[in-house]
Amino acid sequence: VPAGTALAYREPDCDDPETEQAALAAVDYINNRVVRGYKHTLNQIDKVRVWQRRPMGEVFELEIDTLETTCHVLDPTPLANCTVRQPMQHAVEGDCDLRVLKQDGQFSVLFAKCDSSPDSAEDVLRLCPDCPLLAPLNDTKVVHAVDVALTAFNAQSNGSYFQLVEISRAQFVPLPQSTYVEFAVAATDCAAKDVMDPAKCNLLAEKQYGFCKATLTEKVGGEDVAVTCTMFQTQPLPPQPQPGDAVADPAVPAPSPANLPADPLLVGPVV
């Protein structure tokens, strides 16, 4: 920018329809690329600044707040049909910095960076003193509950052996003393009835994911498990590179839970 030249930007209303369109395009972009956890929905637009872009177009620089829904990111349910996680279930919010290009009436995301954090324990307990709080996903009781639930599910399955993709959510419930868990699974090429060594099972080329909710209740002399899983429709094979094709854009990795990125919330190229 030449010295003394004012930078050309405008600050529209945060609830301006065009601002909201840009924010919603970014939320869709994030939900389609994140491979762990739950879909998020737009809650509030905190800041917006719109820059003129040369030679054409405008860049929306946005700060938004999102809220976690109850739909897992692998769940094909449209975001509009997903329920927002309520505060009594220990809600999780996201804070996102975004840059969205509007050109020829189309929005495309240039940059998205989000941090998510659960509501404070004080807030949850003030609303609902007996509500269970979120538990660490690597807690041994959580991991045990998921193992028991997935084993029980596979034991009842007549089809594929399902492998754990990720533990998504966990809570310790005081009465009756139990562990509530939610986790994602994927079908393998082993039959559940015949599997001898799960380590030798491979995810299907045409991925089939599922999402399970389970409760492991502690009892005198043992434990009880209740598990329900919802299977999603299979996901088509990603296009195979052909001889002569350009190198795939590394900024848009194919979502593959078998190869989860280290930071799933940082998506898109940085500009």
Partner: peptide, 27 residues
Amino acid sequence: KVVQPSIAAAAGPLVRPCPGRIRHFKV
């Protein structure tokens, strides 16, 4: 409404353009 450039026009209701509305609830 026409006013002298040095005199501010009567202010209407103050609208804060940002942050925008909360669609669900604030965490």
